[in-house]
């Protein structure tokens, strides 16, 4: 009877759970389902033995011991696997580029302007803004300041976002955005299509009006 219940439970879990759910259930991970299922088929599995074995050292199957306060400090093992980018560079927008790639692409800057700012977590971040002159430098400054002149809004659509390069010392190099020819052609094509439809509509409408100007019918 106990064998039957256990087999039914295992089959239902296989049918309903995804692999992630199975991994999250620590008890079943420890049970090693494949081996146990094989033993069940061979008739060597004993649920009683399993339960008694789990009582030896697991979290379940025993009464609660002395109540201990919950630990307020977390295991350092989690911090060891922390990602290297503690939200100092924006995840969205910009381009991923290494320092060498950026230097090779942009060359020697006219001026490197240090700026300080804070990230989303509120931690101070040092930025090294590389200026190469021109409109793109102004755009980059606007992005860094979080504000730009109203007349820069439309041209900024044709430029990419600034390039952020995180350095080993924690500072971030900022390189200016580049002109995007693809965006320009796309906008021109869309504008041409709109203008074509508008002119065709007006042309057809005027043609109808002019052709029937002499007629008594309208």
């Amino acid at each position: 009877m106990r064998k039957t219940i256990f087999v039914f439970a295992l089959i239902s879990i296989f049918m309903c759970s995804t692999q992630q759910e199975l991994m999250s259930q620590a008890t079943f991970v420890n049970l090693n389902i494949a081996d146990k299922f094989e033993k069940i088929i061979k008739g060597n599995f004993s649920l009683d033995k399993l339960i008694s074995a789990r009582r030896g050292g697991g979290s379940f199957g025993r009464s609660r011991g002395i109540s201990r306060p919950r630990s307020t400090t977390r295991s350092t093992a989690r911090t060891a696997t922390r990602p290297s980018n503690p939200q100092r560079t924006p995840s969205f927008g910009g381009k991923r580029m290494s320092s060498q790639q950026a230097q090779a692409k942009y060359g020697v800057p006219r001026k490197v302007q240090p700026m300080s700012g804070t990230n989303a977590a509120g931690s101070p971040v040092n930025y090294n803004v590389h200026h190469y002159g021109g409109f793109s430098s102004s755009l980059m400054t606007g992005y860094m300041m979080g504000n730009m002149a109203w007349w820069m809004m439309a041209p900024s659509m044709l430029y990419s976002r600034p390039v952020y390069v995180e350095k080993g010392d924690g500072s971030i190099d900022v390189y200016p955005p580049s002109f995007d020819w693809g965006k320009l052609f796309t906008i021109l094509i869309i504008a041409a299509v709109i203008i074509y439809f508008a002119r065709a509509y007006r042309r057809n409408k005027n043609r109808v009006v002019s052709n029937y100007s002499q007629s008594s019918f309208s």
Partner: peptide, 14 residues
């Protein structure tokens, strides 16, 4: 149709 004019009592109507 575009070259058709209708007159009523001598006046073209539209």
């Amino acid at each position: 149709l575009e070259k058709t004019a209708v007159y009523y009592n001598g006046s073209q109507i539209s």
